[in-house]
Simulated assay, not measured.
Amino acid sequence: MGKVLVIDDDRTIRMLLKLILNKAGHVVLEAFDAKTGLSVAEIESPDLILLDLMLPDINGLNLLNAIKSNEWLKKIPIIVLTGSTDQENKLVALRSGAVDFITKPFLHEEVLLRVNTQLKLHSLINSLENAVSHLEKDLMAASRIQKSLIPSYPPEGYFDEIHWIYEPSHKVGGDIFDIIPIDDNSVLLYVADIAGHGVNAAMLSVIVHRFIEDYCDNHPDFELSNFMLELDRNFRFNDFTLFFTITAALFHRESKTLELTNAGHPAPLLIKDDMLELKEPAESIIGIDMLEGNTKCYTISPGARLFLYTDGVTEAANDRGQLFGSERLMKSLFEQRNFQLKEQLENVFNKLKTFTGNNEFEDDISIIGIQF
C-alpha cells in the first residue's frame, strides 16, 4: 500500500479519490492548491502524486515542472488529472515527466488500476536502485581490498630501483602483483591477472595473493617450477569458474640471473642497449591442467631494466577502437629509456591516457619497472 498525495482544488474530487484509495488500503494526503501541494510533498514525501492541471494559484504544468526540478521530489511518480478534451496538456504533461493521466470523469476501477500500477513500478525502481547502491558499495570495498594488497614499498638490497603504475579499472578487475624476498640472495616477482571483472575477480585475486604469500613462507627451498605447478593444482577452473594468467620471476642477486616462467601472460620486456621481449617460456593459463612448469634463465647485465605488465595496458582502446598494443608500449618504453625509471613509467602512462583519451580504463592497468 502507498501514500498518495491528491492536489486538486475541487473538494468533491478529493473526497471521491480519498474514498476510492482508502478503501484499497492507501493513505491519502490532500492539498487544494499548488503551494500547499508542494509543501505537503516536501514534508511527507508521498509515494505517488495525483495532480490536477487546473489549480487556482499556479498552473498544474508549472507545479509539475517544479516538482521534477526538485532534487528531493523528482523521483515521485505523478499522474495528472485532466478534462476529457485537454489533449494538448496531456501530451505536455507526459513530456514534462508525468507517468500517466486520468481523465475526468473517471471510473473507480481505472483510478485503482493506474495508481496501483505506478506504485508497483515505483517500488520496483526503488528496490533496483537500492540493489545497485549495495553493489556499488561492494565494488568499492573490493577495490579497497585490492589496493591494500599492492606493496607499499619494495624490499631493499635486491634492485637498484623499482617503481610501478597501478590503476584499477572502474569495473574492479583482478590484477595483483608483489615482490617477496625468498632469502638473502633471491626474490620472487610476480604479476597475475584474474579473468573478468567485478567482485568475483577481485576476491579471487585476494585468495591468489594470500596463497602465494603462504607458499613462499612455507617453502624456504623455493623452486619456481614447483611453485607454478602448485598454483595450477590449487586454482582449477572447475572450482572457481575463473582462470588467471601470471608471470613469475625469481631473481638471484649473486649470479645476476633471472629465472622466468609465464602462464598465458604478456611477455616481460628487458631493456639495456636494445629491447628484448622475453617470450620464453610460454605456458598455458592457470586452472586448466595444462601447465608443465617450464622455466628459463636470463643473465641480467648491470643497468638493465625489466618491465612486467598486464594486458590492460596493451588492450586499452581509443574511441576508434584501436588498441594501444605491445608494439606501441615497447616503442614508448624504449624512447624513454634515458629517463629515471619512475619518470619513464609516468611518461609511458601519460602516453597511454592520451592515446585512450580517458582517465578511466575498462581493465586494470599494471606496469612494474625494475632496474638492476
Rank of each mutant, 00 (worst) to 15 (best):
Ala31Arg: 07
Thr82Asp: 12
Ser225Pro: 05
Ser205Tyr: 07
Thr295Lys: 04
Phe244Arg: 02
Glu109Pro: 00
Trp164Arg: 00
Ile285Gln: 04
Glu167Ala: 02
Leu63Tyr: 05
Phe211Ile: 02
Glu283Cys: 04
Lys331Val: 08
Gly173Lys: 08
His134Lys: 08
Ala192Glu: 07
Gly325Pro: 00
Pro56Val: 06
Asp363Arg: 03
Phe339Pro: 00
Glu109Trp: 04
His134Arg: 10
Asn226Ser: 12
Lys74Gly: 02
Met54Glu: 12
Ile49Ser: 13
Phe244Pro: 02
Ser332Ala: 15
Leu124Met: 11
Arg144Cys: 03
Thr299Cys: 01
His108Cys: 00
Ser152Cys: 08
Thr36Tyr: 02
Asp138Thr: 06
Ser332Met: 06
His170Thr: 11
Lys68Tyr: 10
Leu231Ile: 10
Asp178Val: 04
Asn358Leu: 13
Asp232Lys: 02
Pro151Lys: 06
Gly25Lys: 03
Met1Cys: 00
Glu71Asp: 15
Asp193Lys: 01
Ser45Gly: 02
Phe324Trp: 07
Tyr166Glu: 03
Lys342Phe: 07
Asn22Tyr: 05
Leu260Trp: 09
Glu30Ile: 00
Leu229Lys: 14
Val115Tyr: 12
Glu346Ser: 09
Leu64Ala: 09
Lys342Val: 09
Asn126Thr: 05
Asp52Glu: 14
Ala141Cys: 06
Lys104His: 05
Asp138His: 05
Trp164Tyr: 15
Arg305Thr: 05
Ala263Cys: 15
Ile102Ala: 12
Ile78Val: 15
Leu91Thr: 12
Asp100Leu: 03
Asn116His: 02
Pro77Lys: 13
Asn218Ser: 13
Trp72Asn: 14
Lys35Cys: 02
His265Met: 05
Gln340Lys: 11
Phe32Asn: 15
Leu16Tyr: 06
Phe355His: 12
Thr36Phe: 01
Met203Thr: 11
Ser332His: 09
Asp363Ala: 02
Gln322Cys: 05
Met15Asp: 11
Thr354Arg: 02
Asn65Ile: 03
Asn59Glu: 15
Gln87Cys: 00
Val187Gly: 10
Pro154Gln: 05
Ser152Pro: 01
Ser366Ala: 14
Gly303Cys: 08
Pro181Met: 13
Leu333Glu: 15
Met1His: 11
Ser96His: 12
His134Cys: 04
Asn294Lys: 10
Ser284Arg: 00
Leu17Gly: 08
Asp214Met: 07
His170Ile: 13
Asp274Met: 05
Leu139Cys: 04
Glu161Pro: 00
Phe227Lys: 04
Lys353Ile: 15
Ile367Arg: 01
Glu110Trp: 00
Ser169Thr: 14
Pro154Val: 10
Asp239Thr: 01
Gly357Val: 00
Glu136Asn: 12
Ser84Asn: 08
Asp311Met: 03
Lys104Asn: 09
Thr261Cys: 06
Glu259Tyr: 01
Ser39Arg: 08
Lys353Arg: 14
Thr82Gly: 09
Lys256Tyr: 06
His209Gly: 13
His252Glu: 15
Ala141Arg: 04
